[in-house]
């Protein structure tokens, strides 16, 4: 890619340095004929301003002749590239039609609407801007805006066959689940109170039944209850801070004395129970 650009660049520099002059158009002339060979309109173009837009019927023919000269002098030159460009400025569709130029600089272009060339862009009821593009190795490139051309409207452009495959896809919009909203504070507080209220029921019922724990503080029971409390504390701590592995480790360590304490404590209660009964 890089060498090609420099290549162009060299030519550009060369062209400006050589100053061989610019290309100009002599006797640009168009003629519109109908299918019955009747001449509808013919005129010489002035390059200074566009003529009235040209109108072509579905079977009309446009003829366009001109001569290319160097620096406006009589001697015709043959540029290396000559194109007519049909451009629809609204839809952006364009068609490029090469024009054959004789070594004497004379050129003739014919557009028969009965058999339009494939490159003619699809049209609506807007005119196409027609311009002439000249390219040359030794002259400055030139563009002449010639005229506006109405051609009969056609269907909208068909989609390019590759368009479906190679197309910029629309941006993906990530949709997230809406943030869960918390209930109002009042409701939360009320329900927190409600959830705690069964404790009153429990305490009320227990006091009515009359709970007696005569042995709770005996030395054989207290280690067991303490260790059970420690277990609950450990689990609570797990919720707040600890990681799984640590909990399992501490739990395992705690389990050993708990089992022994539980054995003695329950053996003791067993004795009391059988003794009492």
């Amino acid at each position: 890619m890089v060498p090609r650009i420099t290549f162009h660049f060299i030519w550009l520099v060369l062209a400006t340095c050589v100053h061989a002059g610019s290309l100009s158009l002599q006797n640009p002339r168009f003629t519109i004929t109908s299918s019955t060979a009747a001449q509808l309109r013919t005129d010489t173009l002035s390059l200074a301003e566009k003529p009235e837009p040209l109108k072509l019927g579905p079977s009309d023919t446009l003829k366009f002749t001109f001569q290319i000269t160097e620096n406006g002098e009589g001697k015709g030159v043959q540029p290396h590239q000559t194109f007519l460009r049909f451009h629809d400025s609204v839809s952006g569709e364009e068609g490029i039609q090469p024009v054959r130029v004789t070594p004497g600089g004379k050129a003739k272009f014919e557009l028969n609407m009965a058999r339009p060339p494939p490159s003619l862009p699809p049209t609506a009821d807007r005119p196409l801007e027609v311009s002439l593009i000249l390219g040359s190795f030794v002259h400055e490139p030139t563009i002449f805006d010639l005229f506006d051309l109405y051609v009969p409207p056609s269907h909208a452009p068909a989609p390019h066959p590759d368009e479906a495959k190679f197309h910029v896809l629309p941006l993906i919009h990530h949709t997230f689940r809406p943030e869960q909203k918390l209930p109002p504070k009042f409701v939360s507080v009320v329900f927190a109170a409600l959830v705690l209220s069964p404790w009153l029921v429990l305490l009320g019922l227990w006091s009515k039944i009359g709970v007696r724990v005569p042995h709770l503080f005996s030395p054989r029971i207290i280690p067991f209850t303490a260790l059970l409390g420690a277990f609950e504390a450990l689990l609570c701590w797990y919720w707040i801070d600890l990681k799984l592995g640590e909990v399992l480790l501490y739990g395992g360590i705690l389990a050993v004395p708990t089992i022994f304490a539980g054995k003695t404590a329950l053996a003791a209660t067993g004795e009391w129970r059988t003794g009492k009964n």
């Binding site: 329900f191 959830v195 209220s197 069964p198 029921v201 429990l202 039944i209």
Partner: peptide
């Protein structure tokens, strides 16, 4: 009594 207590707790949570 303890069972009744747990039952009420559960019911309140479910209602919530």
């Amino acid at each position: 009594a303890f069972l009744v207590f747990i039952m009420f707790s559960g019911i309140v949570q479910f209602a919530y």
